[in-house]
Each structure stands twice: as C-alpha cells, then as structure tokens.
Design a protein around this nucleic acid. Structure first.
Lengths: 117, 117
DNA sequence: GCAGTAGATCGACGCCCATCGATTTGAATA
DNA sequence: TATTCAAATCGATGGGCGTCGATCTACTGC
C-alpha cells in the first residue's frame, strides 16, 4: 500500500520509476470548473463574444434593433444568442415599450477572468 | 443623411425618438472577438476546464496516465479533449518514452483573462 | 378596434461535438 | 524478434447547437 493506491490499478509502471507525481482533484474544484465551463461555453461563439463586446463598450443599455444589423444574421438568430448569454448570467435585459435593451452583468465575466488568472 | 445612416434602413422609428445611441463595431475588434471565442470554446467543456485546472495546479508536466483515472471517461476521450486544448494553444505536450506529458501554456488563458477584465 | 412594429418563440434542418470500441503507432522490455 | 504497454487515431453514433422562416406576443399609434 501507500502511494501506489493513488494510481490507477490498470497502470503498472516499471518498478521504482513513476511517470509523475500522483494527482488528486477534489470535488469542490470540479464544481467550480463546471461553472467556469458554463460561462466559457456561452462565450464560445464569435457572435456572442461580439455581442458582449458591443454591450460592454457602450457602457449602458443597447437596443436589440441596433444589435441585429451589426451581424449578417436574421433577427431570431441574434435573439437566440442573446438568450444564451442571458441564461448564462452574462447579460441582462429590460423591456421598454416595443424595444428591448440589453446590458452586461459583469459578475460572470469577472468570475471567469479571476479563475483564469 | 447624418446619424440616421448608421441605423438599419429597415428600422423606422417614431419621429425624433431613437431607441438608443447608434452602434458601430469595427472589423479589428471582430477579429479579436473571434480569437477570444475560439479560446472560450475550447474551455466550454467541464472536462477540459478540469484538465486545465489540474495541469495548472501541478505547475509542471503531468502524465496522461495520471489524468485519465481522474475522470469517468475512457482514454480516447481524454486524449480527444487534450487535443482540443492543444489545438487552441492552451496546453502543450511532450513525449518521454512511453509516456506523454502535458502542461499549460499560459498565454492563451492570459489573453482571454485580459480581454474579460 | 385595427394595423403596424419589435422582439421572442417554435419547428425544422444540417452540422458539429462528446463519447466509445477498435485499431494503429511508437517505444521499452524480454 | 516478439511482446507489452501508453497514447493517438479512426469510424460510428447519438445528442446538442447555429441558423432560418414562420408564427406569436405585446406594445404603439391611428
């Protein structure tokens, strides 16, 4: 027993020559990793990154009718991407009459940025 | 002419009441956004984020044979995820005899982190 | 009420992706 | 040389995702 128990039972090494330090990975960090992956996944499309970029640089709320013509996409597609960002907690929306305004909620982005550095 | 030309020709507003500031988005930033999306996409899977996490915390090279048993996945699947990370420039690999060692190349992660903050 | 408009939702289509078993590659050992 | 082993690659499969046209919802203005 001893250190060998931390190794996979399938991996038999040439005696006395481990390939590297044994690795452990606690569940708590797995959960945080899952959260980071969810945020990253929402950012894993060029259109959505551009949407976030535009919203951030305007430092305020931007109307959907201004966002759609920025892309070579139909309105339902842009609406879909905004929904993905909203469900990931990256942006928020607010309706005023006919128009809908979107804005960045910095928390998620900051969380990912902090994890990365 | 004037400001109205920046607006979509399809969106006719009630006179004198624009929904928000006109939005422009230069091509240069679109390209950077695409790069950020590529990195984020590679991080958009819990397994891959966990792999990066493990590699970072070990501050050195880790053998694949230590990585595989950390997950409830078969070896080809882990190998696939490592390949995705490698092609995104997030990790590098090095072969020593039978074993392959992976390590984090911090540049890509730093690039994304900087963009986020 | 009625017509017009902004945005969301729905359903469908095609493609990409995560996963696996099977196989291959390449190196070490007997 | 033959065998064993770690890791990569291949091919198949099932599910998820980006995109669209069509439709629906809700608000405005006549």
């Amino acid at each position: 027993m001893g250190v060998d128990l931390l190794l996979s039972p399938k991996t038999k090494r040439p005696a006395g020559q481990p390939c590297c330090e044994p690795v452990v990975y606690p569940d708590v960090e797995r959960e945080q990793a899952a959260r980071m992956a969810a945020i990253a996944k929402a950012l894993g499309d060029p259109v959505r990154v551009q949407l976030v970029d535009v919203l951030r640089k305007h430092a305020g709320k931007v109307c959907v009718c201004e966002l759609v013509p920025l892309f070579d996409l139909q309105q339902p597609t842009v609406s879909h991407h905004l929904k993905v960002l909203r469900e990931a907690g990256i942006v928020g929306s607010e309706r005023q009459g006919l128009w809908a305004y979107y804005y960045v909620i910095p928390d998620a982005l900051e969380e990912l940025s902090a994890w990365l550095s």
